[in-house]
Design a protein around this nucleic acid. Structure first.
Lengths: 186, 186
DNA sequence: TTTGTTGGTCAACGCTTGTTGGCAATTGTG
DNA sequence: CACAATTGCCAACAAGCGTTGACCAACAAA
């Protein structure tokens, strides 16, 4: 059993501040100095605990999507379930927003986003779509709609999209994702 | 008639280099020095001709979407037409990619993107959807799918999405956009 | 109590950034 | 030709960046 170090609260404070900053500002503008200021400590502590800025981002952007496993998922409602799950996950904390904002201008962030979708969405799609051979393409289409909604709603903050209820978003996007998952042809 | 200044070729070279850099790197990493190097001139020239970095971005990101006017658009094929038009427009040059990459981390860029979609997509949607009252929401939904595809295909470069033919993208996204435009309910 | 480890601050480093002003060369104009 | 405007380069600036190493205080182990 790991003993609790006294510095663990500091480490957590740094991580919290980092997640907020990365989500709000992206990689370049989220400076180590600003993150340290938010966490109430000296910038050099960030280096000691996380090595460098890349290491800090890696630590701050680890995430488990906790997607339902494909078996338990009713195939005809997978679209709605996926959209609902992602909305909830996106609004729970700043990690996904940070990942998206960083991924757009930072190579490491983009790779992280790619792996996240390949490893975590891939299997779910493969579980519900008719022919596993075109699962990657279907997963890509699903990603395009879900990422696009996240972009418009949480990053660009397009007025009408922000004002939609979560329920309406699910009602509109659910059938789209469902079609991408299981429709025989386009 | 405006006389042609000798510096117009330099101005154009700067603008070309700026568009490329903004599209490839985003706002912060697209440095004036790098842009000037690409254009083969001194960084101070950029300041003289465009005032400051914000001014350069404003000049480099002006764009006319040239969307078909709503009257001439067959209402039942508007979805496919819109998707096709955007794909073409996105691949013609770097401007939209730059706008997207910058808009994600830069406030001015985000506003520009918002205005672009409100002023140029808005009217088209209002022209084809049944009840003009919910045109903004429908435009938002359309934007979410089109921006999401652009994000996945041109910015994050998700493998399966990049590999899709343009024709397939249109075939898959067309019906989605069509539904967002004209479906009575979700 | 002495000693080693841990948590933390401080001051500085080398570098890059946007931006500025001066100066030389070229061009256009009377 | 002379003179003014335009086009360009060069050197520097102040500020901010990630990162480093020396140093101090608090605590734990001996």
């Amino acid at each position: 059993m790991m003993t609790v170090r006294r510095s663990d609260t500091t480490r957590a404070a740094i991580l919290d501040a980092a997640r907020e900053r990365f989500a709000a500002d992206g990689y370049e503008r989220a400076t180590i100095r600003a993150i340290a200021r938010d966490a109430g400590i000296d910038p050099s502590m960030v280096m000691r605990y996380y090595g460098n800025k890349e290491g800090l981002f890696a630590a701050a952007s680890t995430i488990e999507l906790e997607l339902p496993d494909p078996g338990s998922l009713p195939a005809q409602h997978a679209g709605t379930a996926l959209v609902a799950h992602f909305l909830e996950r996106w609004e729970r904390d700043d990690v996904l927003t940070g990942l998206l904002r960083v991924g757009v201008t930072n190579e490491a962030g983009a790779e992280r986003m790619q792996r996240l979708f390949a490893e975590q969405i891939g299997p779910v799609v493969a579980g519900v779509c008719p022919d596993p051979a075109d699962a990657p393409r279907r997963a890509g289409l699903v990603a395009s709609q879900i990422l696009g909604m996240a972009l418009a709603r949480y990053v660009l903050r397009l007025g009408p999209v922000v004002e939609m209820d979560r329920v309406d978003v699910i009602a509109w996007l659910g059938p789209t994702v469902q079609r991408y998952l299981t429709a025989e042809g386009p």
